[in-house]
């Protein structure tokens, strides 16, 4: 795992900064919880007047008041911000794994060494996943540790919270794997980031339009955002497809990306 450990070391400083950002996000979110809780019913009434699309976009669930800890954490942290942050990280690292390395002309000196392309690609993918796991571990630890002092952990199971963080990681891995595979196929970073971003935005739009139209229903069941956002995981637990779906698709993307990378010319 020489290639993988080298990549992890190269990215450790970056991961540190991303971790600081993630901790900051969690801290800011939970620190405002006491103020939101005090607003109580007034805020819930206001939210009930909002359009359905907006409510779904912020992870609103009629059974779970937004002023309750699971409602608040889900809406403020897990519905958009934490997954978007994790996605940006994963897409960036995934696009760099092969596409970015090759575009910067750093692939050939590395491949002149006695390693196969397959080994290089698999190790750099493994490192990408390991870095993402690191960031998700920080998210989980920060959520658990920082929520309690602000009373934002009442009614939230630790398992549910950690599970939700894992689901964030899986969603990010799905998109990071797209960036990896497109980078492996093209040897370029731009298309890798572009493809993964388009898929992410399209998936999110389809999911948020779901309450307004059933035209997009056929896409729902293959939409990772649907797997991820379909219910409040802090109360109802993680749906299996939110984990298994991204893992399965990522495995396929890895296999396809590596297969193309092994066969093509370097740029």
């Amino acid at each position: 795992m020489i290639v993988a450990t080298r990549l992890i070391r190269d990215r450790l400083r970056g991961l540190l900064w991303w971790s600081v950002g993630m901790i900051g996000l969690v801290l800011l979110t939970v620190a405002f919880y006491p103020a939101v809780k005090d607003q109580g019913q007034a805020l819930n009434d206001l939210l009930n007047t909002l359009p359905d699309a907006f409510k779904s976009a912020i992870g609103y669930d009629a059974r779970i008041p937004l002023t309750s800890p699971p409602g608040y954490l889900n809406a403020r942290l897990f519905a958009i911000l934490a997954p978007v942050l994790a996605l940006i990280f994963a897409i960036g690292v995934g696009a760099q794994a092969i596409g970015g390395l090759e575009e910067a002309d750093r692939m050939e000196p590395l491949l002149a060494n006695p390693i196969t392309r397959k080994r290089l690609a698999v190790e750099r993918y493994a490192a990408t996943v390991a870095l993402l796991v690191g960031l998700i571990a920080v998210l989980a630890a920060a959520s658990v540790v920082l929520s309690a002092p602000f009373g934002a952990l009442e009614g939230v199971s630790i398992a549910g919270l950690v599970g939700a963080c894992a689901a964030v990681g899986c969603l990010a891995m799905f998109h990071g794997s797209i960036a990896f595979a497109v980078g492996a196929a093209t040897g370029r970073r731009g298309p890798a980031i572009g493809a993964a971003t388009v898929v992410a935005v399209a998936g999110y739009l389809i999911q948020s339009l779901q309450p307004l139209t059933d035209l997009l229903d056929p896409f729902r069941f293959v939409n990772p955002w649907h797997w991820y956002l379909q219910r409040n995981m802090l109360v109802d637990g993680v749906p299996p497809e939110a984990v298994l779906g991204p893992l399965g698709v990522s495995a396929v993307l890895l296999a396809v990306g590596v297969a193309i990378f092994r066969r093509r010319d370097l740029r």
Binding site: I2, V3, D105, E108, P109, P114
Partner: peptide, 26 residues
């Protein structure tokens, strides 16, 4: 192999690169 224009991560020191390649080469 000496490429016409060697490009590696600008943060690597010469020692980093030689250690890395050395590990790959056994």
């Amino acid at each position: 192999f000496l490429p016409a224009d060697l490009s590696v991560d600008p943060r690597y020191t010469t020692r980093d690169l030689l250690d890395f390649y050395g590990a790959l080469r056994g």
